[in-house]
Design a protein around this nucleic acid. Structure first.
Lengths: 340, 340
DNA sequence: CTGTTAGCGCATTCAG
DNA sequence: CTGAATGCGCTAACAG
């Protein structure tokens, strides 16, 4: 770091404050002076020190994105949307991964109290079952917008998908495919997306007068091989399910892998549907249907919502929830359905 | 932001400087005082202002990651590795996407001259064919480490894959599968990865005494539908290639899609191999072989390299290039080969 | 329209 | 071992 505002002022024989104002296009500076200043700034390749400015103004033009994982097309797409909006609005984006760990999430949330960012976009970890760290974070005055895996016990802004409808449609899809025994693969009891999707699952079963068998609702963790074991146990028996609704992508993939290993034919013996944002659907086995979320749009909406807070300080804590539509893509057909 | 070092000092009846030193574990403070200070800090939930500290020390404990896209498993995995190392070393990670645009890359590189970050990890955009912006960035004293799509005309640190060997192996794989007419699908003439992979392609053809036909070396862009058109033109003729080596994942997928559309059987009529980091290989068509890069490891190595610079200031500009091995995964077989 | 002055919160001289 | 004083680079009163 070399040329600062003081040096510019010296070169221009102007005061520091005049230069500062000219650069910020203040109304109290003459057009001529502004031009002189800007030309000199360009000539000397002046770069304003963001930290000096942040310290002074007490805002950093930076937001944090806190997500459970990144090797997941949903979150990659969401970041894409977030970054798009941020770049447009001249904001900077810090990334923090919790790897589905509550401890990490707490650590990050506590750290973010220090004012490094003006606002936070957050998607809960699968482990998260208490929210003090988030309440505390909001209490320090830092706006938090939840997306996808939202926190329903804290009032605030949320961007999410119609998980109930998605779960309902996925389950009904299997029912209409003549499945009689449909398993629900759950990532975490605590997550909003999981419980909503499960409610949709239960509602669809009820509608079609199918008994809800608790044993078919299975819990999973972040451990791939443990997950595959549970699925193997479920599938490696004569009275196995004939349909699987995976609440998240990785569980759909795990189910697929287990079927392959056990030589169970998809979709003849078992039909699988799952929430997924893989953009390479044509590469997938044509029998694996998916429910796709508008991940890019969710990222954009979340960022827009957050930045709206940050720009308009007269907004008191708004509680706006935006619910975007998911899309059912039945494989082997080109039919695409958007619901409500 | 509320409780600052001054308030801590008042509560403790100590001077500001003593508190500051105690918090930083300075050797000139007694153990007892340190403890008092730290307890009070914890009690009042003191959060040091990172921007004040950055301004004073002229470093931000922040790095930038500049990548062409994020909805690509390679970069998602790389970020995973980068974030892992950064979190471990208490660094913060800013993300900038260039969307394969040189203009965006220039914009970002110029912006990063302002000292917002201590260092930069960068993977070139497909369009990048001049490097002034990167030379300038390095000239300001900000360390830059290139990864994957490295810049060979600028001396410095690079983390990359054995692209020549990968290209060679991929091509030879097709040759050994009896392909006679192998197309090379190139993302950009400018990228190191593309040209290295192509050199491997040429070398493999030479080794097996196959004539290198320039018409089989095809250039592609970032435009998916334009790409599919080019591939369609190539495949929709009687003397079409019987093998395709895609230099990047998206071109392999595009090839696959076109084959499907044209009802060309894979692998009977056309064999496809491509660089790819999709972690769901079992879901892929079993005839689509891949070359996989150690993306997570590349991210980790790149971050480690950069942070090593940042921590040891006595290091003069080191030019270290680390080349990691890629892995060929022939589908339909469990054989996995690491080379070099 | 422009200049003077006083901090933002912290780290680091320099004195004791 | 601790305290007083200075300034990182910039913005925002408060004057003129």
């Amino acid at each position: 770091m070399n040329v600062d505002i003081k040096m510019l002022a010296k070169h221009l024989r102007l005061s520091i404050s005049t230069v500062s104002r000219a650069l910020r296009d203040s109304y109290e500076i003459s057009a001529k002076t502004k031009q002189r200043v800007k030309e000199m700034a360009a000539q000397l390749n002046y770069q304003p020190n963001p930290y000096a400015s942040s310290l002074r103004k007490n805002k950093s033009k930076t937001i944090a994105v806190v997500i459970p994982e990144i090797t997941n097309n949903f979150f990659a797409l969401a970041i894409n949307g977030i970054e798009y909006i941020s770049q447009e609005k001249k904001y900077h984006v810090l990334i923090y991964l919790t790897h589905e760990s509550l401890l990490k999430e707490i650590e990050v949330a506590n750290h973010l109290q220090n004012g490094r960012v003006d606002g936070v976009l957050l998607s809960l970890s699968a482990e998260t079952n208490k929210y003090d760290h988030l309440v505390n974070l909001k209490a320090t005055g830092i706006p938090v917008v939840f997306f996808d895996r939202i926190c329903e016990s804290i009032p605030g802004s949320c961007i999410t998908t119609d998980d109930f409808e998605g779960g309902f449609a996925a389950t009904e899809h299997l029912i209409l495919c003549k499945c009689k025994k449909i398993a629900y693969l759950d990532l975490s009891r605590h997550l909003s997306i999981s419980s909503k999707r499960m409610q949709g699952y239960v509602a669809a079963l009820n509608k079609h007068n199918i008994h809800v068998d608790e044993r078919l609702i299975m819990q999973f963790s972040n451990d791939v091989s443990a997950n595959e074991e549970v699925i193997t146990d479920a599938l490696d028996s004569s009275d196995r399910p004939d349909g699987i609704f995976a609440s998240v992508e990785k569980l759909a993939i795990a189910s697929y892998n287990v079927c392959e290993k056990l030589k169970i034919n998809i979709p003849e013996q078992v039909k699988i549907i799952g929430f997924s944002n893989l953009e390479i659907s044509s590469l997938l086995n044509p029998s694996l249907s998916t429910i796709t979320q508008p991940a890019y749009e969710i990222g954009k909406q979340a960022a827009l919502q957050l930045l709206r807070y940050l720009e308009k300080k007269n907004m008191t804590d708004v509680h706006e929830t935006i619910i975007l539509k998911s899309t059912l893509i039945p494989r082997g057909s080109t039919k695409v359905t958007s619901f409500k």
